[in-house]
Amino acid sequence: MQQSIDQLIKGRRSIKKFQEKPVDLEEIIDLLEIAKWAPNHKMTEPWRFLLYSGEGKEKFIEAFKATQGTGEEAAEKAAKKAAYFRSIPIHLVVIMPEDPRQKTWDEDYGAVSAFIQNFQLAAWARGIGMIWRTNDWIYNPVFREKVGVQPGEKIVGTLMIGYAEHVPEAKPRTSIREKLEIITE
């Protein structure tokens, strides 16, 4: 049975543990096609993507590992994280242009964020979960170069995508009444 948009928004969760079940790449492309209907000023469509799946995930993992420093402790930590990354069916790097004009940059970032939310909701409706990550290593020039992010581009986030192994409980939200000021005169 189709969920209402209200139920879909309230029910969506960030997923950190995924089933080994692969996600069909054509379904991901279909979901991206749906998400592109996000509002974007002047129809600039300020997004581009790098999708890592199957053996291609190793390129993403190697780029991550290259940012983790040297030494035994760093290598152990990187190996543990790499094993986790391998367990995730798809990694999607979401990229936008960094326009030097602040207004355009803000509009582009808003559009890409709306795109990501559309993508998350459309995927959730089909039983596909994800988490939107903005870890510190996405800002590392080594990672950026290794994944092919060009000068003048920003990684808005990495989306880790798959079928949920575990769906967390909802965390409480503050009532909007506590954050809303109504001005009537």
Rank of each mutant, 00 (worst) to 15 (best):
H41C: 03
I28Y: 00
I34G: 00
I29H: 14
N40P: 02
W47D: 06
L31G: 03
A35R: 01
E33L: 06
L51F: 08
I29W: 07
W37N: 12
E33D: 12
Y52F: 15
L31V: 04
L31Q: 08
K42Y: 07
D30W: 00
A38Q: 10
E33P: 00
I34S: 00
K42D: 08
P46Y: 05
P22N: 13
V23D: 09
V23G: 11
W37M: 05
M43L: 13
L31H: 07
L31E: 04
M43I: 03
K36E: 11
L32M: 15
E33V: 02
L31S: 08
E26S: 14
P46H: 06
E26A: 14
A35N: 01
W37K: 07
K36Q: 13
A35S: 03
V23Y: 11
N40Q: 03
W37S: 04
D24R: 02
A35Y: 03
K36R: 15
L31I: 07
A38N: 10
P22M: 08
E27Y: 00
N40A: 03
P46K: 05
L50H: 14
E45L: 04
D24G: 04
L51E: 03
E26V: 10
L25T: 01
F49Q: 06
R48W: 08
T44R: 14
I34F: 05
A38R: 10
L25E: 01
P39S: 10
L51Y: 03
I29F: 13
L51P: 04
L25S: 05
E33H: 09
T44Y: 03
E26Q: 15
L51V: 15
W47P: 05
I28G: 00
F49R: 05
A35W: 01
I29K: 14
F49A: 09
L32C: 12
M43Y: 12
D24W: 01
R48H: 14
D30H: 08
L25K: 01
E33T: 04
D30R: 09
R48N: 15
I29A: 12
R48I: 05
L32I: 14
M43C: 07
L31P: 06
P46R: 03
D24S: 00
F49S: 09
V23T: 11
V23F: 12
I28E: 02
D24M: 02
D30Y: 06
K36I: 12
E27S: 08
M43P: 00
T44G: 06
I34A: 02
L50I: 14
E26G: 13
Y52C: 14
I34E: 07
L32N: 01
E45N: 05
L31D: 05
L51R: 04
L51K: 04
K42E: 08
P39Y: 05
Y52V: 13
E26I: 08
V23M: 13
M43Q: 11
E26L: 13
I28F: 03
W47M: 07
L50C: 13
L32W: 02
K42W: 00
I28K: 02
E26Y: 11
M43S: 11
P22K: 12
